[in-house]
Write a protein that binds this DNA or RNA. Sequence first.
DNA 1: TTTTGAGTTGTTCGA
DNA 2: GTCGAACAACTCAAA
Length: 472
Amino acid sequence: MSKALHWFRQDLRLRDNPALTAACEKHTSLLPLYIKETQPALPMGAAQCWWLHHSLDALSQGLHAHGLTLCLRQGDPLAVLLQLCEAQQIDTVYWNRCYEPLHIARDKHIKAALLAKGINVHSFNGSLLNEPWTISTQNGQYYKVFTPYWRQCLSQMPEPRLPDITHWPDNLPLASDALPDWQLLPHKPDWAAGFSKYWQPGEQGAGDRLARFISKQLQDYADERDIPGRDATSKLSPHLHFGEISPWRLWQAIQEAKRNPACHLRSADRFLAELGWREFSHHLLYHFPGLPEQNFRPEFNAFPWQHDEEALSRWQRGLTGYPIVDAGMRELWHSGYMHNRVRMIVASFLIKDLLIDWRVGASWFWDTLLDADLANNAASWQWVAGSGADAAPYFRIFNPVLQGEKFDPSGEYVKKWVPELASVNSKWIHKPWEAPAGALAITLGKEYPRPLVDHQEARAFALLSYQTLKSP
DNA sequence: TTTTGAGTTGTTCGA
DNA sequence: GTCGAACAACTCAAA
């Protein structure tokens, strides 16, 4: 008659959940628990609080279908765990591992404290194809370049195992907080009002996205993933972040699709490589824990970043006067998401046109992205800045007009998110300031702003600034 | 230890 | 309009 506790963190799912499966197999009673930390090491962004609310709601219903009740508690995790274990004579605690440095430290501390009280702790890999410490070069170093890293991963990929629960233990009924009392949802103003139009948090929503991706999007993924006006990307990132679906299931689904002779292999491998980038980011963060704050390449510590509150605010609100940039920033604000291609464009603009510190951009993304993930966010911003591992060379500066014309030729993406430009001819949609007099139905500077900076001048200045980093 | 080839996502300029 | 070179060397990973 042993009792177990499963501590849900970034694994808000029932299927293919190794820690939960083990807990169910080995114990007769189970307490499923989620803890809202009162002093989190890594406070969640506002957009993700919205997601968390709905994901917990979905998880709670999913558990309920199997006779279990999700227990919600608020406080210091160790104190909550100890209190519950003692009150219910729980002998074993299960969880899936987290990989952010502060979470590793937290879990290590909690594990030691529980063991000291005679409580067993079992942890599992529930979130990554390859955990960061399992991949290394022949010299035993960690990888700093993606391509050899991913080659190595592919060469040692373990057989996927998708453990499912066959026997559900008895419920341990316990008092729980009420989810609405956590006040995760915004109110006054309800800026998340539009989110539910685009997203269905939870395991079911994640599974639906995957099915849609395999059946409708995979075939043309390699060719269309860069076109923000198309619905060509999987949009699985927030589901992956919260662990509503495991990378193993994606891996397996792609392998299955590849067995179909009609499958477009370049697309399938391209998608897997995107999973690879997620893994690579975690690998980098694990081995270089300062990644979210410190330049991976220390020579960037001398970079002359500008402080311009007005420019930052216009970037955040999507009022830079560069349509593709503004469309991206508004997509982010309205939907909690931004197309990958456009993320690179807006990041390049903030860093290289406005010369604003990449950490400032990362912090805005952290607060507004539903898929905000410490490893991915830090690694990607540093990549654009040039301060990161395997980074873009400093002279790779995106031209927002060319990028717009190349990847959004008809302007449909811009028109969707910047409605004041909806009437502009596609010839001028990415550079309305060049339109001849009378060609625009709107007035620049009134309905839509003039460019915040001149890109050619900004580019030249950025190149000069990057020159200063070179050793004398 | 030394050598060698390679490295997500771009832009501009001049022929 | 199209194409290739230059942009700047440097670091990484494997042989």
